[in-house]
Write a protein that binds this DNA or RNA. Structure first.
Lengths: 200, 200
DNA sequence: TATACTTGTTACTGACCGGTAACACCCCAG
DNA sequence: CTGGGGTGTTACCGGTCAGTAACAAGTATA
């Protein structure tokens, strides 16, 4: 079995349009190996297509990277919607649900931290199209946390939100050096303690 | 003025032995632009020497990267020594001094997070010589924090240490996306609140 | 002065990178 | 049947990458 055939069978050459297959392949490869470590040729092959088709759908590799991150940001947005729907009118329930979901996600075996944060490390150039996406995403995440903490009625919502924000950012970073059994696995306990101390 | 001449004047072609100049140039370039974004030729030029001399001192680029990180780890070790010397027999003073120093360092304008963590993002290959350095360093940092928290006599030293550890990791990561004015700038306040809640 | 070690210089290898040109093909709409 | 849009294929471009060979030149020690 050739590697191309392997890619086709695993990554679906089915009825999915090429653009989606390319984005799916890029997401997987970028996240696992890093953005700079993955060439467009490898992405096209994993998507069961070729470089020409890739460049018919994306102006450049940098634009493909930006779109890859935009999709992840959109997914995160949907997660917040689901969270609100799961705990309607219950901000504390939403906050605790968020914490639990974050710990479960971060500790997952094949997680390598936050793709957006990792991209920020790999792409320090100020004018890279990915940077806007990263900065807007992280700012939006913090804003949502602030709003949620505010809705719980505690005294210093921004303080708690920033503590939780940094805790999560740290957990995601730390799994790449001390592993998922480290401090990241205590995210819920830490967050609950933090919330409790702000309620008191 | 050629770029080589510029490199010589800025990065010192003086009496410093080539190996040290290469490491200094590599540290600067790796940190600012990322490891994969910097070629050995550029490092040699910035060090005021050439590729051959670089390869006479380092077996490969990967080994140069590992040594770059080893130096930073050693620097951090010295910082802990200095901290103990500045607050002899005063673990709480050491802890608060550590916090203040970390915030000042993280918020610095030309900081781009922790070089070791960034390297972990850029080099996910399990057998890369840098990975051992990264994992040992981060584990050692956490151990030191646990020991320090333990010396303060609080009830749950590991819990506090892990909270502070994640807070710092998060602060370092966050400056690359939301900037140094973001949550990272409240590191001391957050840490002090955390310590206070553990003392109570 | 002779020897040994370190450094500089130039040129090179083979591989890979992002990106493009040209052309054949297929399939669906008219 | 015809035409056009999306796709596949191959080959190519210029550039950069990590790493090496061969040789000249410097410097310190004996």
């Amino acid at each position: 079995m050739t590697s191309a055939a392997n890619a086709v069978s695993s990554s679906a050459n089915s009825q999915t349009p090429p653009r989606e297959r390319i984005l799916a392949a890029a997401s997987d490869l970028f996240y696992r190996h890093g953005i700079r470590a993955v060439g467009v040729e490898a992405i096209a092959e994993a998507a069961g297509t070729n470089k020409m088709t890739l460049y018919r759908h994306f102006d450049s590799k940098d634009e493909l990277v930006a779109e890859y991150l935009r999709r992840l940001a959109a997914d995160a947005g949907h997660f917040w919607d689901d969270l609100a729907a799961a705990h309607p009118g219950d901000p504390r329930g939403q906050l605790r649900g968020w914490l639990a979901a974050m710990e479960a996600h971060v500790v997952d075996a094949d997680q390598r931290g936050c793709a957006l944060s990792n991209a920020a490390v790999e792409l320090p150039e100020k004018d890279h199209p990915a940077r806007r996406v990263i900065e807007q995403f992280k700012t939006a995440q913090r804003d949502r946390l602030v709003a949620l903490c505010g809705a719980t009625g505690i005294a210093e919502p921004e303080m708690l939100a920033d503590e939780l924000f940094l805790l999560l950012e740290g957990a995601r970073a730390s799994v790449q050096s001390v592993g998922p059994q480290g401090p990241a696995s205590r995210l819920v306990r830490m967050g609950e303690a933090l919330i409790a101390s702000h309620l008191a």
